Deep mutational scan, measured.
Amino acid sequence: MEVRTIKVFTTVDNINLHTQVVDMSMTYGQQFGPTYLDGADVTKIKPHNSHEGKTFYVLPNDDTLRVEAFEYYHTTDPSFLGRYMSALNHTKKWKYPQVNGLTSIKWADNNCYLATALLTLQQIELKFNPPALQDAYYRARAGEAANFCALILAYCNKTVGELGDVRETMSYLFQHANLDSCKRVLNVVCKTCGQQQTTLKGVEAVMYMGTLSYEQFKKGVQIPCTCGKQATKYLVQQESPFVMMSAPPAQYELKHGTFTCASEYTGNYQCGHYKHITSKETLYCIDGALLTKSSEYKGPITDVFYKENSYTTTIK
């Protein structure tokens, strides 16, 4: 009895394709271990004539594949690729409408935090270190965002349907971005203890939790000093293409032309909904596939993004 075979390709990165001759009487799992086709788990399936010449994702289970996976995804987590594939199996079914010149995501599976993050990423200057993220990001900007969303979920250790947080998501993504040249110098002034300067680099240099107003941050924000008295913390120097200011959701007025974009969060910790506000020729609110415009805006804002380049204080 002759062994019926077909020729397929296996890959971990969709760049390096490895030619395989597979036995049609055995499952993919018996031949390769966990195997995925377009995100779908085909591990328990036997090869079919229609699979001839198709590319299958496999887990990096030998040295060659491990090197290829690390170079593309910059992670050695053995569960990463499987999590990416199972997320992709959902995100490829989502709709990605162009809204006001940006790629958004039609609401499904509690994905409003991903839509808000995706919209924000198209408006701030950011370059990702893992080629996987950078490639998928370019495709997302062009309207094909399924891979990018699935990668975000995998890097953030999230599953489809789980509630997510924009600030946490951005923080994970910033860790995989090139923020080497970003720098922030802060000064804390206390009447009792004097003053202390701190220099922050990388992710810490672009994120701040405690106030939404970048102007206020430049002037000074009140913080408790270690001595128990009130101290003032203010920005001395900022070198970065953008800054992200966050605070627990509270009524906040966004003035046209003073910011790049913002995240609105309605609801409580267990259950809520994100919308995205962007400042173009007027203010726009993007909620999944829905767009509304207004000249002014007041609502429960939790993150505001500002364009920056270089700032030095005039406070002496």
Rank of each mutant, 00 (worst) to 15 (best):
R4L: 11
I6E: 06
I6S: 07
K7N: 12
V8F: 05
V8I: 13
V8Y: 05
D13M: 05
N14V: 07
N14L: 07
N14E: 15
N14Y: 12
N16S: 08
N16R: 08
H18Y: 12
Q20R: 12
V22C: 15
D23S: 11
D23V: 14
M24L: 13
M24P: 14
M24A: 15
M24Y: 09
T27R: 14
Q31G: 08
G33W: 05
T35V: 05
L37Q: 13
D38S: 13
D38I: 11
A40D: 10
D41A: 14
V42Y: 15
T43D: 09
H48K: 12
S50R: 12
H51I: 05
H51N: 10
H51A: 08
G53C: 11
K54E: 13
T55W: 08
Y57V: 14
L59S: 14
D62Y: 08
D63H: 13
T64R: 13
L65P: 06
V67C: 09
A69H: 11
A69W: 08
E71G: 14
E71M: 09
E71K: 11
Y72V: 09
Y73A: 03
H74N: 07
T75E: 15
D77K: 06
D77L: 06
D77Q: 07
P78D: 15
F80Y: 04
G82Q: 15
S86L: 09
A87K: 03
K92H: 07
W94I: 05
W94H: 03
Y96L: 04
Y96G: 05
P97A: 09
V99Y: 10
S104V: 04
S104G: 07
I105A: 05
I105L: 06
I105G: 04
K106I: 08
A108I: 07
D109V: 04
N110G: 04
N111T: 01
Y113W: 08
L114W: 04
A115P: 02
T116M: 04
T116F: 04
A117Y: 03
T120C: 11
L121Y: 03
Q122Y: 01
Q123F: 02
Q123G: 04
E125S: 11
E125N: 14
N129M: 08
L133K: 00
D135G: 09
A136C: 07
A136M: 08
R139P: 05
R139K: 11
N147L: 06
C149I: 09
C149T: 13
A150I: 01
L151P: 02
Y155R: 02
C156M: 12
N157V: 05
T159R: 14
T159V: 12
G161C: 05
D165M: 05
V166K: 03
R167T: 04
M170K: 02
M170V: 07
Y172G: 10
L173R: 02
L173E: 00
L173C: 06
F174R: 03
Q175R: 15
H176T: 05
A177P: 03
N178Y: 07
N178D: 13
L179G: 00
D180G: 11
K183A: 07
R184Y: 01
N187S: 13
V189G: 06
T192L: 12
T192R: 14
C193N: 02
C193L: 01
Q196S: 13
T199F: 08
T199W: 06
L200T: 11
V206R: 01
V206P: 02
M207C: 14
M207Y: 06
Y208C: 09
Y208Q: 05
Y208K: 03
G210A: 03
G210R: 00
T211V: 13
T211E: 11
Y214D: 02
Y214K: 01
E215G: 06
Q216E: 12
F217H: 01
K219A: 11
G220K: 03
G220F: 01
G220Y: 02
V221N: 03
Q222M: 15
I223D: 12
P224I: 13
C225R: 01
C225G: 02
C225D: 00
T226C: 09
C227P: 01
C227D: 02
G228H: 03
T232V: 14
K233G: 15
Y234F: 13
Q237N: 10
Q238C: 01
A247H: 06
P248D: 07
P249T: 01
A250T: 12
Y252A: 06
Y252C: 10
Y252I: 13
L254R: 00
L254P: 00
K255L: 09
H256P: 14
H256S: 08
G257A: 08
F259P: 00
F259L: 00
A262H: 00
S263Y: 00
Y265Q: 02
Y269L: 13
Y269E: 11
Y269G: 09
Q270K: 14
C271N: 13
H276T: 02
I277K: 00
T278E: 03
T282D: 10
Y284H: 07
C285S: 07
A289S: 11
L290A: 14
L290T: 10
T292Q: 13
K293A: 13
S295Y: 08
E296Y: 10
E296M: 06
K298D: 08
P300Y: 14
T302E: 00
F305M: 06
Y306W: 03
Y306I: 02
Y306R: 00
K307Q: 10
K307A: 13
E308N: 15
Y311R: 07
T313Y: 13
K316E: 09
